[in-house]
């Protein structure tokens, strides 16, 4: 029997998850309620069944996610029987940092990058498992599956270790840690095919529905709650839209679409061939910015 590509990707991801758990002292899985998180959680459950995955989920919250995402997060964690840690950067909270007044760069830095560092340090986690993929961004193409972080969560390109065969070197000194990416070799199409094949629940935001929207700086934004206030001249319109990637709602551009099922989404991808991140406002400052964010510890 020849295994299909999805079977092999699944087997590889499960292998990586088990290696991470076996090599870690205090592992944690990052969960953001996006489709990659949903797939990762599903794989974690499969990897350790009938036991529960031997790590908690960590959501680094920004308070600006879509309401649907919070609901899905709580439901998914409960279904998996896993402990859910929600971290919000207290400084960002105190200063009321938000994407509308402070811009995407500062908002992301404080809530996500700093927030993640705080959460990992507070939990003394030495291995953080995440759902990032190499095909998301060109500079990610060289990212390791076990990505080494020096003390202070610093990503140092010179200290990354060669990865041969299925062997991951997770040795580390005190204070050093790893980010582990079981979905490294998956593409967006693989993720959707797997979601379909395994019947995984993903956020309804990925599917087209009539949503109240405005257009700002050429991007369609959904009015997910009252905090995003249309500016004079911005017309609120109901559009048939969906999201390709999910983040903070004022930073997640929607696309007009009629795709209501996973099959529709895959068909749409085949036809349009626009890269996934073009809807993400935080990546607009060019490819090099991603590299910088990575060094600073952004996931």
């Amino acid at each position: 029997m020849t295994l299909t590509h999805l079977q092999r990707l699944e087997a590889e991801a499960i292998h990586i998850l088990r290696e991470a758990a076996a090599e870690a002292e205090r592992p944690v899985m990052l969960y953001s309620a996006g489709k990659d998180s949903s797939v990762l959680l599903h794989l974690a459950v499969k990897a350790f069944a009938p036991a529960r995955p031997p790590f908690p989920l960590l959501h680094v919250d920004t308070t600006w996610k879509f309401p649907e995402m919070y609901a899905l997060r709580d439901r998914a964690a409960a279904a998996a029987g896993m402990k859910l840690i929600v971290h919000r950067n207290p400084e960002a909270e105190a200063q009321g940092i938000n994407p509308i007044d402070h811009g995407s760069a500062l908002h992301t830095q404080m809530w996500k990058t700093d927030g993640l560092k705080q959460a990992l340090e507070q939990g003394r986690f030495d291995v953080a498992i995440g759902g990032a993929r190499r095909d998301e961004e060109r500079v990610r193409a060289k990212e390791r599956i076990f990505s080494f972080r020096a003390a202070g969560q610093r990503w140092d390109p010179k200290r990354q270790r060669p990865e041969l065969w299925r062997l991951y070197n997770a040795r580390r000194a005190k204070g050093e840690s790893f980010r582990v990416f079981p979905l490294s070799n998956w593409t967006e199409a693989d993720v959707w095919s797997y979601v379909e094949a395994e019947g995984i629940e993903v956020s309804s935001l990925y599917f087209a529905a009539p949503r109240r929207t405005i257009v700002r700086d050429g991007t369609i934004l959904a009015l997910a709650d009252e905090r995003l206030v249309p500016r004079p001249g911005e017309e609120v319109r109901e559009r048939m839209v969906r999201f390709r990637t999910l983040g903070c709602y004022p930073l997640s551009g929607a696309v007009e679409s009629r795709a209501a099922t996973v099959g529709d989404i895959l068909a749409e991808m085949a036809a349009s061939r626009l890269s996934e991140r073009q809807g993400r406002l935080i990546d607009r400052d060019g490819a090099a910015s991603m590299e910088r964010k990575k060094r600073e510890g952004y996931f």
């Binding site: 299909t4 590509h5 999805l6 095919s193 094949a197 395994e198």
Partner: peptide, 20 residues
């Protein structure tokens, strides 16, 4: 969606003719 994808024994995705 890969049209050939189907469920096999115990939740394994099985290869059919059109699969990758």
């Amino acid at each position: 969606m890969d049209p050939g994808l189907r469920w096999g024994d115990g939740g394994i995705l099985m290869a059919t003719g059109s699969e990758k």
